[in-house]
Design a protein around this nucleic acid. Structure first.
Lengths: 204, 204
DNA sequence: CGAAAAATGGATTGTCCAATCCAAAATGCG
DNA sequence: CGCATTTTGGATTGGACAATCCATTTTTCG
């Protein structure tokens, strides 16, 4: 893959390019992001970009990895505390606040890429799928803990997937409608359902 | 908008173009669909397309309307019977079966357009938002009936939105993972939750 | 220090594609 | 029938954009 030997400076340039590409693709879409814009945004030359990435496709795959990390980072430490209803609600609040800060723009950084590439870019689709899997696993961990503890009745795997799908749908509709309500309602509904399967006394 | 006087033949040509454009854009994305492909698919000439549509943007807006109708059509008559748990489950089965038939390809016809245009095409975003609203209203109607009848405890508006977001998230993740499970789990979870708020005895 | 490898500059190329243009044919309508 | 309007043909244009190329500078490391 990255067969080349990277110097510290080179690694930094590469990182700058990926970060800017991620930002641009997030803000305006993949096809709509041109290499020239990327040059302008990074102050890099054309040969620099093609020195670090074989083509736009390779860059896109790097962006997907970058965004997957960014998403998981954004959710720490909350994502590691999904083993109580209170933890779930705090996580929900974080996600909702984040969308408010974004003025409901952008949607999910990997979901939007997935949607744009699913039918015409198998490698990108698989990379997004793998990102989703990491995310789903992180969510499931908390629910599994609840279940093992005996506090949760119901399949933690199903509920984790239900949370992530609610989140994805909520982000999409929030992006389209430019209001945070779909995200709130989607997450609240699934969390309420989890709470109803729980022995724990729901926090006020 | 459509200021021109359309003859029967002209209307038919226009319809053919929109249908083919909808199909192509659904299968490969908006930007990836070229006017030349569209010509090939419809057997129409360049001037025909530009005779009926000012530009690609106008065509896209027509496609959004077309797909909104198509989605609602697909769900009849089930969408008008969402006032019982059985009706909700039958609707769920229809949606799941449909994705299976599609081999989990394509996702939601308007959701994918929304995702591709939300940040760089305000008119398209609004058209998709309006399509979502019609959809949401159709779902809410059934739940409102349940609620008025006294069978449902809980806000029909919130639950309708939760159903639609679950559906959107489920469709997206089904498309990415190429398995129908996310859609099944997402819908089942919300429907189970609705059932738990219901006086009705859930059908076996 | 000095040769090899890595990083950068920037002009260029070839392709693709949305949109235009100038007709000609078909259809509607009085 | 005959004029106006609508529909169709297809070649063309102009711009945008991914990717290449050749050269120069900088860094690494023995």
């Amino acid at each position: 893959m990255t067969a080349k030997q990277l110097t510290a400076k080179g690694a930094e340039t590469r990182r700058r390019i990926v970060a800017a590409a991620a930002q641009l693709m997030y803000e305006q879409g993949i096809t709509e992001t041109t290499m020239e814009e990327l040059r302008a945004a990074t102050g890099a030359s054309s040969s620099q970009i093609y020195h670090y990435f074989a083509d736009k496709q390779a860059l896109l795959l790097a962006v997907i990895d970058y965004q997957t990390e960014a998403i998981l980072d954004l959710q720490t430490p909350h994502i590691d505390r999904l083993d109580t209803i209170g933890g779930l609600r705090a996580w929900r609040d974080l996600l909702v606040e984040n969308q408010k800060r974004m003025q409901c723009r952008g949607g999910c950084p990997i979901g939007t890429i997935g949607s744009q590439t699913a039918e015409n870019n198998p490698d990108a689709r698989l990379a997004v799928a793998s990102g989703y899997l990491r995310w789903e696993n992180a969510i499931r961990a908390g629910l599994t803990t609840m279940h093992r503890r005996g506090d949760l009745d119901g399949d933690p795997g199903d509920l984790a997937l239900a949370l992530l799908t609610a989140l994805q749908g909520g982000l999409l509709m929030t992006q389209i409608h430019r209001t945070v309500r779909p995200l709130e309602v989607a997450l609240d509904t699934v969390i309420d359902h989890i709470a109803s399967l729980t022995r724990e006394i729901p926090a006020a």
